[in-house]
Design a protein around this nucleic acid. Structure first.
Length: 217
DNA sequence: CGGTCGATAGTCT
DNA sequence: GACTATCGACCGG
């Protein structure tokens, strides 16, 4: 099965998110191809979602989220990490699904090499555990922002996504999103994280940490 | 094991 | 100038 037509992605992220679970996200460039079977995602719902980048409207960074579904929204944060999202909904919605984790099913050696270039080695089962590691394993950078799934970027990176044939895999779980606080600091107000149980690549839950300021003076 | 904290820079107020 | 859809080293048990 190939990447579905763009229309397939143009649905509510709360509906699309579980459909992505178990599917295979793949990126290929000159260095080679890496593919992951998606095991954990989070839905971000634009203007209705205080935790979404797109909550306050379109900016230069989040412009891709406001484009049509079926594209890659890739951003850079914390001064060192990239993250990969699948844009959901029709153009203008600002909807997306963050790919938080996956099991590497192709190109494990390349994924490990990319990891080693920056940090020490990691257990192969955890090569794509956490959003930053997903992007690093796939080799995704800001140059991939706006890439069409099923297409190729101007830099020559080919992206594709193959969903599980037919339906979402049974038995997926839902819970609060990681590192996102809802109204009143309650992340459980938006339990929009979806994952496959029993997968070693699924990251542990971390609440949005109110990080302590450095001591005054 | 599990909790805590530093690194590091783009983005928005 | 504070905050961030984070990672991993480090420390104590």
């Amino acid at each position: 099965m190939a990447t579905p037509s763009p229309v397939w992605f143009e649905r509510d992220p709360l509906e699309l998110a579980p459909l992505l679970l178990g599917g295979v996200l793949r990126r290929a460039d000159r260095a080679g191809a890496v593919a992951i079977r998606v095991t954990e995602v989070e839905a971000y719902r634009g203007a209705d979602d205080p935790g979404a980048h797109s909550f306050r409207g379109r900016t230069a960074r989040n412009a891709t989220m406001f484009g049509p579904g079926g594209h890659v929204y890739c951003y850079f944060t914390y001064g060192m990490h990239h993250a990969v999202n699948v844009v959901a909904g029709p153009a203008g919605s600002g909807w997306g699904v963050l790919v938080r984790a996956g099991a590497v099913v192709e190109g494990a050696a390349l994924a490990l090499a990319r990891r080693s270039a920056r940090r020490a080695s990691a257990p192969s089962g955890e090569l794509a555990r956490g959003p930053g590691n997903v992007a690093q394993a796939l080799g995704a950078t800001l140059a991939d922002d706006g890439a069409a799934l099923g297409g190729t970027t101007s830099d020559g990176a080919a992206w594709s996504f193959e969903p599980v044939a037919g339906f979402a895999p049974p038995g997926h779980r839902t819970g609060p999103r990681v590192g996102v606080s809802g109204p009143g600091g309650d992340a459980t107000a938006f339990p929009w994280r979806f994952w496959l149980p029993g997968e070693p690549s699924v990251s542990a839950y971390r609440a949005a940490a109110p990080r302590r300021r450095s001591p005054a003076g």
